[in-house]
Write a protein that binds this DNA or RNA. Structure first.
Length: 518
DNA sequence: TTCTATT
């Protein structure tokens, strides 16, 4: 059995501190499961963990720092993962208290929905308690209802970056194990984590994550290994690059969704150039956002909370039913298997909770009516592709749509002050911020329109014009941003963007007084 | 060929 001893993860605050425990590589011979292979500290014996019993309907009791509850200067903040979503702070407390006095324990909640994220941060008063807890708990026990073992490890915030030393390894062959990957990367530095990505069946997806202890090590692995060889059975040479950040993953998912739009009419492929231009604009936009945000996190108005992104990613848009306009063969479109059941139930009441805003008497309901309702006007018809698409987008809707419905949301008191989306009754952006979009797919409603433009900035309003008689989309609409740069980015990326057989026309909305001399 | 989550 192979055993590789490694030094402990370096801590940001004490880079010089000698390793206080060693990490052991669990290699082949050890029963490898589909779990990521981690470099686990030696196990110590601790009392059998008694799982806390969730208490129904009780309020969370956050444990906050207080006097007499001082923490070590070098205390380690731990990230706790794989927590059942029905466990709150007070439920978790007993589990962790056995390793020492807790300084702070916070279950992470979605900022907007208050939804339990299934993870928490934990800081003990004593550094040593954290180490004990990690050794005793990490990957050692699976909490009720969870399919993976609990995670107890230093929070990302405890190590600088974290991402700048984590590599994505692609184009592995599916037979390669964690150990194979480990061996491959071992020469370049200290490997803290090595995970082969696997599907539910445990089969390798042909890629892996390798985390080095330093950026430099990671960089050197890239320099030497990337493209250096082609694994047997792989379609191209080995890919070694820094892993995506969450933001990049978000962008990737959006790109994938965009790609899926082409499925509305499989006969026409999305031209790569257009796709690429959208992707590129997304990247630029995201980069701009990141640069403008000191914390490095996306502005709430633009960011998709990770949990919701996850929801999007979990939905199979490929299962879209044929649209009424463009029936497709069974070839590329399996029967609609997506149902509302695939969407967290919280979504529906929120999205449906909108009340109509009365149309203006000027005969222009569109731009005047912001988020009149969260549903496309055709939603009462039999299921359409857009219905399903809407479900796919529900996570985003839940986020974006929630603001106008503040008084209707069941979790209203957990909502923070709504960000700029809530310029409440503002319907049209400043000049240069309002776009006219033509050649929309018939199935697109306000929401789909909004989703398509959200990546470029804060969408103040989105409206697809409907034919009053037929209740069908007139295939054009308006989108308003809160700033001209977003509008320009959207034009750059989306004008000429092909969806099905059509190409979008995206241009600035003509100002009302455009033709009027001043 | 990008993971279960990181205030």
């Amino acid at each position: 059995m192979a055993r590789f001893t490694q030094t402990e993860t370096r801590r940001q605050h004490h880079p010089q501190q000698p390793a206080s425990s060693s990490l052991v590589f669990i290699g082949p011979g050890a029963p490898l499961t589909h779990q990521p292979l981690l470099l686990l500290p030696h196990q110590h014996q601790y009392p059998q963990i008694t799982l806390p019993k969730p208490m129904n309907g009780s309020e969370p009791i956050p444990i906050h720092p207080e006097s007499g509850n001082m923490k070590d200067q070098d205390a380690i903040k731990l990230f706790i993962g794989q927590i059942p979503r029905n466990l709150e702070e007070k439920d978790l407390k007993p589990l962790f208290e056995q390793f020492g006095k807790i300084h702070e324990l916070t279950v992470l909640k979605d900022r907007y929905t208050g939804m339990h994220k299934g993870c928490a941060f934990l800081t003990y008063c004593a550094r040593e308690s954290a180490i004990k807890a990690q050794n005793a708990l990490h990957e050692q026990k699976t909490l009720p209802g969870m399919t993976r073992p609990i995670q107890v490890k230093p929070a990302d915030s405890e190590s600088r970056g974290g991402k700048d030393r984590k590599l994505f390894v692609g184009m592995l062959n599916k037979q390669q194990t964690e150990e194979d990957v480990y061996r491959l990367f071992e020469p370049y530095g200290v490997i803290e984590e090595c995970t082969v990505l696997r599907g539910p069946d445990g089969n390798s997806k042909g890629c892996a994550f390798v985390k080095f202890s330093t950026h430099t090590e990671a960089q050197s692995a890239i320099g030497t290994l990337h493209g250096s060889q082609t694994m047997p059975g792989a379609s191209s040479s080995l890919v070694v690059k820094f892993a995506d950040t969450d933001k990049e993953r978000t962008i990737r998912r959006m790109q994938q969704m965009v790609g899926q739009f082409g499925i509305f009419n499989p006969a026409i492929a999305l031209p790569f150039s257009t796709y690429s231009s959208y992707a590129h604009a997304l990247m630029q936009q995201q980069a701009a956002i990141m640069a403008a945000t000191h914390g490095g996190y996306l502005t709430p108005s633009v960011a998709f909370p990770a949990t919701q992104i996850h929801q999007m990613g979990a939905l199979n848009i490929n299962s879209l039913p044929p649209t009424p306009m463009t029936p497709v063969s069974g070839l590329s479109s399996p029967p609609a298997s997506i149902t509302t059941s695939a969407v967290p139930s919280i979504v529906t009441p929120i999205v449906n909770g909108f009340t109509g805003i009365p149309h203006q008497p000027n005969g222009h309901p569109a731009v005047e009516t912001v988020y009149t309702n969260g549903l496309p006007p055709y939603s009462t018809q039999s299921p359409t592709a857009a219905d399903t698409l809407q479900q796919a987008f529900t996570g985003v809707q839940q986020y974006t749509a929630i603001y106008p419905a503040t008084t209707l949301t069941p979790i209203g008191q957990t909502l923070p002050q709504p960000p700029q989306v809530i310029q409440q009754q503002q319907r049209e952006g400043p000049e240069g911020c309002n776009l006219f979009i033509y050649h929309l797919p018939q199935e697109f409603g306000d929401n789909e329109l909004m989703q398509m433009f959200l990546p470029f900035g804060t969408v103040i309003s989105s409206k697809v014009f409907m034919d009053r008689a037929t209740n069908q989309s007139k295939c054009f609409g308006f989108v308003s941003f809160d700033n001209p740069a977003s509008a320009q980015a959207a034009i750059q990326a989306m004008n000429g963007f092909q969806i099905g057989m059509k190409r979008l026309k995206v241009q600035l909305k003509r100002p009302k007084d455009a033709s009027r001399p001043y």
